[in-house]
Nucleic acid binder design. Sequence first.
DNA 1: AAAAATACCTAG
DNA 2: TCAGCTAGGTATTTTT
Length: 905
Amino acid sequence: MNFQLLDADYIRKDNSPIIRLFGRGDDGRSICCLVPGFEPYFYARPSTVNSHDELIRALEQNFNSIKRVELVEKFEPVGYQKSRKKMLKIVTYDPQNVPEIRDDVVSFPGIEEVYETDILFRNRYLVDQGIHGMKWVHADTSSDIDHSMDCDELVTSTRIEEVDRIDSAPLRHFAFDIECLPINGGMPVPEQSPVIMISLSFEPEFRGMKSIVLLGRSLDDAGDGVEVLGDEPALLNRFFEIFREYDPDVVTGYNINDFDIPYIVDRIKTLQSSGITINSACGRDGRPLDYRKIGIRSMVSITGRIVADSLPIIRQQFSLKRYNLQTVSRELLDMEKLDVSPQQMEEYWLDSGEKIRKFIDYARRDSELAMELLLKLRLLDKFVALAQISGSLPQEILEGGQTSMVENLLLREFRKHDYVLPPRPDENIVSSRNRESEGLKGGEVLEPKKGLLEKVVILDYKSLYPTIMMAHNLCYTTVIDIERPDGNIIKPPSGGEFVSAEVFRGIVPSILENLLNRRTETKGLMKGAKTEDEYRVYDATQLALKILLNSFYGYSGYTRARLYSLALANAVTSFGRENILKTRSVVEKEIETVILREGKAYLKEEVTSKDTDDVIVKLSVVYGDTDSVFVQCSSETNLELEDVELVGNRIAGIVSHSLPDPMELEFESIAERALFIAKKRYALWMFERSGTEWSESIKVKGMETVRRDWCELTSRTLNSVLELILKEGDVEKAMEYVRGVVDRVRNIDVANDPEIIDDLVLTRMYSKSMGSYKNKQPHLTVIEKMKKRTGAAPSIGERIPFVIVAGKDLFVNRAEDPDYVRQNNISLDVDYYIKKQILPPVSRILSAFGVDEAALDYDSKQKGLFEFSPSSEKKLSDQLQRRKKGTAEDHDSGNRKSQSSLFDF
DNA sequence: AAAAATACCTAG
DNA sequence: TCAGCTAGGTATTTTT
């Protein structure tokens, strides 16, 4: 029997652990597969002097829970070693015994250190058997047992093997959303407010239905897709009944981890205390719904299934100003959320006509949207690929970060090479690592040549840090630490020493090599994909490989890592810095000039005679950040895109050739014009090759248009200015545009035009607990005001919108809730928006052309207005002027929906 | 009034 | 932003 592995855990039977694997078969049946016989264990390193036999006997006698001790040969995890050392493999009866006895074992006479003492038993099993999360497995034999499990089949198997398949099992997706009735319009609390409705969506359909709304009251002629349950207990019981019958593999919703699920669980407790019992069994093993609180956030797992809350995934994958369901559905799905305000809710709920029906429709939309988000945006694809590659279970990846995946890969590869892994560091170790980690230096950022430049080639290093680790054999296992090698030594610029690959090939470099090769292969397969689905699978796979490739460097400098090495992390970045500086010097000093002749790019030493048709291109590096270089190409002759491309490819080729394998500099794209403001702040009019054509775009980095703590007004104004300058080279027009915006802002009439506020809203993340802020912050004053007025309490991690209202008070105190401002006709601080939101970012750009801020402010000193004209050296050549493709305004007004926008004129 | 500290968000 | 890392710019508040 074959099934796709969704989840795993273990149970105990007759004092022995049994692994349980959960999945969905290709026949569509859900499966729980029991695997007996796998033993828990960990490793210990004895001091060299002792007799191993005696030590083993002493351990076996002293610890009841030790089943047996085996003598094995392993390498320690860190530092180059010539040979394996004697170690003890301590096998216990129960997985729990491992954490129970590890502290006593480490302090037992004759034991120096323990390893792999905190590996979850199910992960231990998957790693040792070579099985990966979300992969297909084949279960050898099976014997049906009587079954009280909530899945179609319960089998026992002694032999499990992974099968190579890229398709997905027919997974069942279940989305839900609850509605609660708040006490007079406030936030509902499970101790008081009942759950009144639950909406459910299914993919594939459940009994021919895409969605169902469960209603916790009575109603005649409720209509199709509505189940009238009468009261709350019946509603909740029916919810779980449908849940079990549908038997979902993936459970989703919007913010279910932090709201819906904890609410249901707490509500059931409340009902229980008044003698009402709800059967909330929903795990594939029949476990009731539950959640656990870790710090301020709660986590949910359901045995045998994947709980995938779309909110945190969307937060991670999309940069948005706000993350409420309304904004997210509009921005990402182009769908509208329907809503009943908390104040109206009671009225709608008690109605028996139009209103309750509307309320039901609104509720239905929420679970539909949650399902759409998961499926249309294909939110799970990346996690599935990450699970398949790293071997971690999907739930673990959804809950945690990169750590579990990196450690999973390390554990598998270390095991193959007879290396052991240390346990997670305790708090003492972490804090001492934190102190020394201040010495970790990062990438090099080159000072940009500020102002507007033309014909800039953009080159970057393909996976710089991973390829550095591979090229220089940088690994925990190659640091020269305890023993010195006989062969070659690699000395990074940061100091320290590593053995070369001929002496010993590092494990991390070999993991990276494997990931990099697979990525290249996958990209090849992607090109040949026959179906859309196949393409998506390969695309998610190559993305996951990229994420994992880049995780190893970060992990090495992560103070809570099992394997932390400042020497390693510093070696990587120091090679990186050296590399970019050397690249700059090669381009400027060694290559210096490229000669174009008959469609080829030559170096100056390759050309012996002069030709009148030669195009001579001078190179200068105008910017670079960590793994990229921007090279300006200057020539007497006008350069076409193809010419610049030839230059770019030649530079990439020469530089790559001088680098150790597999380091590689790649030609990326061409900026016809580039505007550099500061380090990490620039805008490009970019041309990228797509087949035989060139695709054109404007790319903005770091500037206010891409920052979420500036208002829409700023973003749009700046975007237009950038477009006018980059595409049309028209500074005058840009100034005119800004003056127009300033003028309109000065004459804003909120009372007449409440929608205008939308363009003036700033957002900031409420990022830590109130008490730990040392300074006043605008979004915090808004939170305080809202709490006082409505009792609404945003939680940490939310982005808080606000506007600045008129007044004499300190800036922070004039931050206000946009809704409140709208409702109460409060006037905004027009001057703030002009002087602090529009002018500074715009003048940072225009000052490069000699424009003074006063020349932009319509109302202030009229003089600057007529004095200015762009200096002749900044004027752009006629021939470039001819290339314009349409004005900034065309683009801008075309995208706007609202008529009352500041930008329609 | 200048300098330092704090906070935020982004680039890579 | 839900346990990978550092570098860097800008606005505002707080301290000197």
